[in-house]
Design a protein around this nucleic acid. Structure first.
Lengths: 292, 292
DNA sequence: TTTCACCCCGACTTAATAGTCATTTTGAAG
DNA sequence: CTTCAAAATGACTATTAAGTCGGGGTGAAA
């Protein structure tokens, strides 16, 4: 078994349970069943261990949302609902990690860790913002910020409930529920029953801070590869594209699993590469995925 | 100047800024301009210091809401709105304390502190629950939990924005806004457009946990004194009661200030005690308030 | 000026834990 | 069985910070 991953898993569950500062490297080593010295041969510091945790899990939890976002056939509301659903599926799967992240306590120790946590929160924000804009466009601008903050807070609350294990709720139900809340809010604003209290001026600093971290613009390499691939796919004629997209979706599904089967992924990519026009993009994407 | 309070203030702002674990007793002592030794003559441990902070501020921030709750002349919705408003006024006044509390980081170190933070959150919950029940009664039961969690999360989000200082919003506006969201949600549930996803069964553990802490039932002595007093007041005839209530409100207003004037409070109580029927209750309340 | 009670100080002790490195163990190859 | 390089170990060092305590300063009264 991969020792590095065993360390990450143990560390995550200890950090989630007792907190970053309250967990010693010795405890982590004991938990994995190795010595402190060995632990330090994998991660040169506690900080690096924490950063590796973020690098390892962040992608796993958020990529699936991004990929659904690329699917242009789904109507916006349904797409958002599906995104929330897979998001909550991810949360359920990586409970301990989300719990650790939600404590947000490690951030106080290190600039780097703080930047990662901040960035992760920013990602959620950025995604929600894009979704809101694509749903309501111009009409939205006046109450965009209030909706962003309110929906994000509701999202976080259900996430918290899920992670704490107190309520066993199906991801699909929460997805539906949150989207309905979003709609109800939007309607109330549009009808003029609700009035926004946040505005562009107030949020100026906030936007600057987000931009500084690059959350509104940057993409991970892997996500970029997906994007390029889907763009290529769109250029193909309909009939051909849809079957290829099904294959691509199956790949994305496989990568989401905690223990993806490499053979399956390779096989699916082999199918994709049979089409000359997208072979190159598929190759790039494959490398990006298999390099993990 | 009162050194004990100076320590509390310095500690709160350091804890808010850097976090509990990242702030040393030496720094606090330096901040106040005394030595570590002296610091330990006021508080025998870091934990006790933190607990004293909670004891000192908790009451200050929440009592005002409770007192408005006792006023039975206000229609329910307006009452709730006013309660949110004064609540946010309190948050604004004790920003550093709220910031510290929201980090919620100290809890990981001590059972006692964790219990206090938990209790404080529970108080908010309990207050919201009572408000919801008095607003919607039986009709509410099916979607009570979802509304509780959603409204509480929205409340926390605006509190966070206020405390972070990023957005300068008036408490009155937020009060109105949150109540409107509550209404819109309730309407959506009642019309059957939204469907609850939390139910009594799921929340069983949660309720038990709350009850264990006593947040759904217990009152502080001071609040109990207020309650008794207002009950007595209600027994008087209308004309007399209203002028006395005004005096009582003025007292509550004074106690809310960061530096209440004791003379003013004593004077107002003297007025109240002129009425034989409520003199006893007034005396109890006065003692409770002045003993602080 | 001297005395004395009181308060205040900061160097010291103690404990926890991040990070290091000389030594030991392991297991594969000869 | 012997060799040896790589991996694993845990005793050790260094640092940080909570909590203690004996000595020193202060100011009022004589």
């Amino acid at each position: 078994m991969n020792k590095r991953e065993a360390i990450l898993e143990t560390a995550v569950s200890l950090f989630a349970e007792k907190g970053y500062n309250q967990t010693s490297m010795q405890e982590i080593a004991d938990g994995v069943g190795i010595s402190k010295g060995s632990l330090y041969s994998f991660f040169t510091s506690k900080e690096e261990l924490m950063i590796s945790i973020y690098e390892h899990y962040q992608q796993l939890v958020f990529e699936r949302v991004f990929i659904i976002g690329l699917d242009e056939d789904l109507p916006p509301l349904q797409k958002l609902e599906k995104q929330f659903t897979v998001q909550f599926e991810g949360i359920l799967e990586y409970k301990a990690y989300m719990k650790m992240h939600m404590r947000g306590e490690a951030a106080t120790n290190s600039k780097k860790i703080s930047a990662m946590e901040h960035r992760m929160r920013g990602r959620l924000f950025s995604w929600l913002e894009k979704s809101l804009v694509s749903l309501y466009g111009e009409e939205l601008s006046a109450y965009k910020w209030d909706m962003l903050f309110m929906i994000q807070s509701i999202y976080r609350t259900y996430m918290m409930l899920m992670v704490s294990g107190k309520a066993k709720i199906s991801p699909a139900k929460i997805g539906k529920h949150i989207v309905r809340q979003l709609e109800a809010m939007a309607i109330d604003f549009i009808r003029g029953n609700s009035h926004p209290i946040l505005d562009e001026e107030m949020m100026k600093d906030f936007v600057v801070e987000m931009d500084k971290e690059g959350v509104f613009i940057s993409f991970e390499k892997r996500e970029q590869a997906w994007k390029t691939f889907y763009t290529k796919l769109k250029d193909l004629e309909k009939s051909e594209a849809s079957s290829l997209k099904e294959i691509a979706n199956r790949i994305s599904e496989e990568t989401r699993k905690s223990r993806p089967e490499m053979v399956v992924i390779k096989g699916l990519f082999a199918l994709l590469k049979e089409n000359g026009e997208i072979a190159a993009a598929a190759k790039v994407l494959e490398n990006e995925i298999l390099s993990e």
